[in-house]
Amino acid sequence: MITEHERKQEMINKINDDIVKNGFKALTMDGIAKVMGISRGKLYQYFSSKDEVIEAVTARYIQYIEKISMIADPKDAQGFIDEFLSIYFQNVVLAGSSSETFINDLKTVYPDLYEKFSESLAKRDAVIQNFYESGMRKGVFNPGLNAQLLHFQDKTMLTVLVLPKFLFTHRLEPSQALRDYLKIRVRGIIIPEYQSLVNDANVNSQIQHLDKKFRRVFTETI
């Protein structure tokens, strides 16, 4: 039997995508209840205000960032390659699950929450930069690369590649864009002798999953 905590989490999950993609300044408790698929009275049984809903969504987002920031310390080349792919797809999910509108709303309306959100992202950035630097020291990644710029390039490019308007304008399929950009990253970062360690089956599985997700967004947006 579902617990009250689990029911509340389900409600947060239902409103999460709407808030992180579209922001929340214009959102009302009636609007939140509609997205959640419940009555306003039922909503007030779990959340006393819109503020509580936004805080819960932001906390969920921060928890996810902290979870994927626990990057392993690989012991061999295969470990580095697997972690490299994991980071790539995590970055895709992050790029596709937020928006400039949400971040600006958070910064304007809830500066304390915005600070916590920014701190969690900054910590993850540092962990990933250390990962790239370690890979270069271990001879798995091409030497002399700027680890900070590598990660910044990913965040910048993926933010664009997940935009339905960009894909539509350039006649790109989501799967094609993600796969081709990953190929560029593999060839530019991993030394040639280790590029064959990329697990193509895992890559295809991840891309197919994300392709379905982005197609739903594409259909709703275009």
Rank of each mutant, 00 (worst) to 15 (best):
I2G: 03
H5K: 15
D17G: 10
K21V: 08
N22R: 08
N22G: 04
G31C: 05
R40F: 05
R40P: 02
K42W: 00
L43T: 07
L43I: 02
E55V: 07
A59D: 11
Y61D: 05
Y61G: 00
Y64L: 11
I65H: 01
E66L: 04
E66W: 02
K67L: 08
D73Q: 13
K75S: 01
D76C: 06
G79E: 01
I81V: 15
E83V: 05
F84S: 06
S86H: 12
F89Y: 12
N91P: 01
S97M: 11
S99L: 12
I103F: 07
Y110N: 03
D112W: 03
K116N: 13
S118N: 12
E119M: 13
L121C: 04
A126F: 06
F131G: 09
K138V: 05
F141H: 02
N142K: 15
P143T: 14
N146F: 10
A147M: 04
L150P: 03
L158G: 11
L158T: 08
T159P: 01
T159E: 14
L163V: 02
L167H: 06
T169Y: 05
R171E: 12
E173V: 02
S175C: 00
Q176T: 13
A177F: 03
L182Q: 04
L182W: 07
R185V: 01
Y194M: 09
Q195G: 12
Q195R: 15
N199L: 07
A201K: 14
V203W: 04
S205V: 05
Q206F: 08
Q206C: 12
I207E: 07
Q208R: 15
H209I: 11
F214P: 02
R216A: 10
